[in-house]
C-alpha cells in the first residue's frame, strides 16, 4: 500500500490534469497581468515597455479611478449595512419552528439562484422611468411626484443598483446565519427561557455570540464580492451617468476591452487584485484579534 501511494507515475497522473489547467488559467495570468501593467499595448501596434507610467497616470490623472474607488467603497459599505442586519433579522425570525418556515426561507433564497444578468435586466425594467414597477407603484399610491429616472440620475443610480443587489443576496446571508443558529444547543435557549429571559435577551446574549463566526464569513464575502462587482453595474448603468456608478471592475473592463488599452487595464486589475487580497488579509487579521479579546 505504502509503495503504491508513493508511486510517482500515479501521483502525476492524478494531479497533473487539474494542476495544468489551473496553472495556465489562474496563477500564470494573474502574475503576467502584473507584467502587462508595465506596458502600453493595443494588441495591434508593437508593445512598448513604459515602466510605472501606467501607475503614475492612474494615481495622478485618472479621476475615473478615484470615482470608481469611491463608488466601490460606497457599494461595499451600503451592501453590508443593508444586507447584514436584514439577513440577521430574517434568520432569527425563521430560526423558530414557525409555520411556513421552509416556504419563506425558500422564497427569500430564490433570487440567489438567478444570474446577475437576469436580475439586473429585470431591475433595469423595474426602474424604467415610464413602464417600471417603481414609478408605476408610486403613481398608483398617489406619490406620483416622487417619480424619478432612478438609473439615469447620477445622484440615485448607485443606490438603485445597491438595492437590486441586496434584493438578490439577502437570502444567501440569511441561510448562512440560519445554519449558525441551528448549531446552538437547544438546552441553552431552554435554560435561559426558564430563567425568564425575554426574546431580546436570548437574541443578544445567546444567538449573537454564536453567530459571530458566520457574521465574519459573510462580511468577508460581501467585501470581496463588492470589490469585484461588475455584472449589475455593467448591465444597469454601464458605469454612467458620467461615471456616477463606475466601479473598479467596470473601469478596468472599459479601459482594456472597450478602449483597447490592455496595459492600462492590467494596471487597474493589478490595483484591484492588491485591494482584494489586502482586504481579505486585513479582515481576517482584524477578526482574529477580536477572537482573542473575546
Amino acid at each position: 500500500m505504502e509503495r503504491l501511494l508513493r508511486n510517482k507515475t500515479t501521483i502525476l497522473m492524478f494531479i497533473l490534469p487539474a494542476l495544468i489547467i489551473y496553472s495556465i488559467v489562474l496563477p500564470l495570468p494573474a502574475v503576467s497581468s502584473v507584467y502587462f501593467s508595465l506596458v502600453e499595448w493595443n494588441l495591434i501596434d508593437t508593445m512598448r515597455f513604459v515602466g510605472l507610467d501606467n501607475f503614475s497616470f492612474l494615481f495622478l490623472y485618472d479621476d475615473v479611478f478615484y470615482a470608481a474607488l469611491k463608488n466601490t467603497f460606497i457599494y461595499l459599505l451600503l451592501s453590508i449595512a443593508l444586507q447584514l442586519p436584514m439577513a440577521f433579522f430574517l434568520a432569527i425570525i425563521l430560526s423558530k419552528a414557525i409555520k411556513g418556515r421552509r416556504f419563506f426561507r425558500n422564497v427569500i433564497f430564490l433570487p440567489v439562484t438567478f444570474s446577475g444578468v437576469a436580475v439586473s435586466l429585470m431591475w433595469y425594467f423595474i426602474y424604467h422611468s415610464e413602464v417600471g414597477l417603481v414609478n408605476r407603484f408610486l403613481e398608483a399610491v398617489g406619490l406620483g411626484f416622487l417619480k424619478h429616472s432612478w438609473l439615469a440620475d447620477g445622484s440615485t443610480a448607485l443606490y438603485a443598483v445597491i438595492i437590486c443587489v441586496a434584493w438578490q443576496f439577502v437570502g444567501y446571508h440569511m441561510v448562512i446565519y440560519m445554519a449558525g443558529i441551528s448549531t446552538i444547543p437547544a438546552d441553552i435557549v431552554e435554560a435561559a427561557k426558564m430563567d425568564g429571559a425575554g426574546e431580546w435577551h436570548i437574541i443578544k446574549h445567546i444567538m449573537f455570540p454564536y453567530l459571530i463566526p458566520m457574521l465574519k464569513v459573510s462580511t468577508i464575502l460581501m467585501t470581496t464580492s463588492s470589490l469585484k462587482s461588475f455584472d449589475n453595474i455593467y448591465i444597469m448603468t454601464q458605469g454612467g451617468p458620467n461615471h456616477a456608478t463606475e466601479v473598479l471592475a467596470s473601469h478596468m473592463y472599459t479601459k482594456a476591452f472597450a478602449q483597447m488599452e490592455y496595459g492600462y487595464g492590467s494596471a487597474l486589475s493589478t490595483a484591484l487584485m492588491a485591494l482584494c487580497i489586502s482586504a481579505t488579509v486585513l479582515l481576517n487579521r482584524l477578526f482574529r484579534r477580536d477572537d482573542f479579546d473575546a
Partner: peptide
C-alpha cells in the same frame, strides 16, 4: 437649460 433632465443618463 438647453438639455433635458438627467441627459447624461438617458
Amino acid at each position: 437649460g438647453a438639455f433635458p433632465d438627467n441627459f447624461n443618463g438617458l
